[in-house]
Design a protein around this nucleic acid. Sequence first.
DNA 1: CGCGGCCTTGATCGCACTCAATTCTAGTGG
DNA 2: CCACTAGAATTGAGTGCGATCAAGGCCGCG
Lengths: 234, 234
Amino acid sequence: MIPLHIESAWQGTADCRTCGIRDMVLFADLNESDFKLIHAPIDDIAFQNGAALFGEGRQAGHVMTIRKGFVKLVRNAADGRSRIVRILKPGDVVGLEALFSPIFDADAVALSEVSVCKIPVTVIKDLSAQSPRLHMRLMERWHRAVKEADDWLATLNFGTARQRVANIILKMRHADDSTLTTLFSREDMGAMSDLKLETVSREVSRWTKEGVIEPQDKIGRLYKIKDSEKLKNA
Amino acid sequence: MIPLHIESAWQGTADCRTCGIRDMVLFADLNESDFKLIHAPIDDIAFQNGAALFGEGRQAGHVMTIRKGFVKLVRNAADGRSRIVRILKPGDVVGLEALFSPIFDADAVALSEVSVCKIPVTVIKDLSAQSPRLHMRLMERWHRAVKEADDWLATLNFGTARQRVANIILKMRHADDSTLTTLFSREDMGAMSDLKLETVSREVSRWTKEGVIEPQDKIGRLYKIKDSEKLKNA
DNA sequence: CGCGGCCTTGATCGCACTCAATTCTAGTGG
DNA sequence: CCACTAGAATTGAGTGCGATCAAGGCCGCG
């Protein structure tokens, strides 16, 4: 299926105070005295498309905040089939379960060039015990994760193939320009919505033929949405 | 579909210190000084089978800890179909999202006789700001909710109808006697696994005919599991 | 006894899966 | 620059599983 590259590029030790996306992340509202509590290094790491950030069942000693790119969380069944359980975007945290569980619940795989801050669990725990500001941020993340998970079930895994694909198209709209949407490989889209890749392909083609979406590249990833209403009440 | 009764029976103001299931709940490891911080009344409330604990989109001013019974979280689609997103058991917390969101994300409906502690959000917030002990408990709940949600997707909504029903049977095994399992109405089971009630019925019948499960009542709820291995690798 | 709700079972239909062939793209090396 | 290749997407034909439509049974209750 998807080749798993294990390469990761260390880019240096991060200074959270000057982080470009600090307002989106876990440490958004820490103050100077909070930062003094950080006694372990926070690394900045890059992964290429298809690389595993970590594997299901692996030792979990750190969490990662996504700075750039998309990450899929994958559960693997015994019989080889796999299911994408959620997709994480910049600002989201990968592996929060490390705070409670010694092992990760799912594989995390880069869906594009990804860069992350790797934060030791000890840092989170120290800060969490002393900074009520971080608490709120952490709980917000959890809340977001639960809501996303429920949404995933209620929208992407519901109704006909036509509707599911429509909902993926809508979910993957760009934050800055909601008339654009970036899809994933047909196989990944299938793993998200419990469809076979051929079915996904057929339905994407159908929406295209109907003029509801319009390909912007030759590889079936970037599309322009011409009629989002038709997608919504498919 | 399911009739929603709005009756609820107030049973009195609870004293958390003497709560029978305190070791399972949110306030498990609060101490005497923590309890002094509770300035709003915590009520003990009962709901009958089918009653709504609260509705999707409603004002959220409190959370509820389940003391007895099961509760389903339901997302309703525009076209009237609905999807059970999760099932909550005693010790679980309903409506944690009230801490962040002014409205609830889903309907919560009693699946049996249910009794809950109704805790004002203000109490949680006060305690949370001052008791690190509650923090950990809260995060544990969030963690559990996310894991449950992911499990739900990966096991109940995966594979053939036969496998899905098998997984529901396994999931609903009793905590004290894992050879017994209590199912829900065929319609609810369908809403859990994205199947029609007729299909659920057929598959339950099939497992029964094959001798893998054995009905213990006449209404198709309580079953004895004779061969859990067959269910696991269906 | 009759009624209503739910479960069960049967017959048929259609959507998504399966198997398979073809096209397209990007990448590689001559 | 072009030929060749591997990987992905697309398209087609046929099958089968679960949905749909419908009838009948069982249980609890007034």
